[in-house]
Nucleic acid binder design. Structure first.
Lengths: 153, 153
DNA sequence: TATTGTTATACTCTATAACTATA
DNA sequence: TATAGTTATAGAGTATAACAATA
């Protein structure tokens, strides 16, 4: 399974470079990706990202400072906030996703069409199996990423 | 190729957790892995890890402080050093590698034996294709990780 | 009391720029 | 001059522990 480890570093490198091309860190880009179809509270966001809530506070604070996200007050519970993409953030999320797609396609260019599909399908299978066996909610199932027990990412 | 992105986060999470079980950060564990069969200079090490040389100085300094690696003087060039695993570092590298193997096997447990092999083989294929097309030396081809143009990892 | 989120603090990791010591 | 490595500095990202406000 060694190739899998190397591949994970390769893909993370591609993500980092693609995000970096738009002055984003990997984590900031990941945040944008996660928020594309959610508006979670801080605690839920921490759960999805596999981070401690205090780490999430910082991540969101930096994103907010750059105008990528907004903290939206919740009427029913005055303790709570929801994190939402700003227009700029949403636009950037789309742009970066396209760039990732482009670079990823390039990276798997050495495979036949059949094998590309096979790889993609096997990857999804592993991810879903892991999500099921660890009981982690992947939500609508987008580029959500590493569900892990210990918040240690 | 979205599953591939999710899988990369999953694998990185597994690596982080496995390393964390031995009080190591992902980067420290990666350093140990890289040094398993090399004794590079700082500049070469930076190249392999895709980091700036100053980042490498810090990484090695922290590892050395914990007794995981040693800086070995080079006779022929009094500016240079080589970075080598200590006995403790070597032992830990083995232990962590075994732990990673165990957790990874578990993660792909949802696949049939055939599909596990297929996934592994496709992953290696992508990694090697990328290495060739970017002219990056993967050395002996172990868990070396993300060869990337811009040092940005 | 329990939950939501923030703050204070301390590390690791990273890069850029400037530096030292050799070649 | 060029190369090998370090230092100074700054910022992101992370966790733990303690806290405030609200439920």
């Amino acid at each position: 399974m060694d190739g899998l480890v190397q591949l994970s570093f390769l893909v993370q490198g591609i993500l980092t470079d693609a995000a970096g091309a738009y002055e984003l860190s990997l984590q900031q880009a990941r945040l944008l990706g996660v928020l594309r179809d959610r508006e979670p509270g801080m605690a839920q966001l921490a759960g999805v990202l596999g981070l401690d809530k205090s780490s999430t506070t910082g991540l969101v604070a930096r994103a907010e400072r750059r105008g990528l996200v907004r903290r939206v007050a919740v009427d029913e519970d005055r303790r709570a906030v929801r994190v939402a993409l700003s227009e700029h953030g949403r636009q950037l999320a789309l742009t970066v996703a396209a760039e990732v797609e482009r670079r990823l396609d390039e990276a798997v260019g050495g495979l036949t069409e059949t094998n590309r599909k096979r790889l993609s399908q096997l990857a999804s299978q592993v991810v879903h199996h892991h999500a099921r066996s660890t009981g982690v909610d992947l939500g609508t199932g987008r580029p959500v990423a590493a569900p892990s027990q210990e918040p240690n990412r």
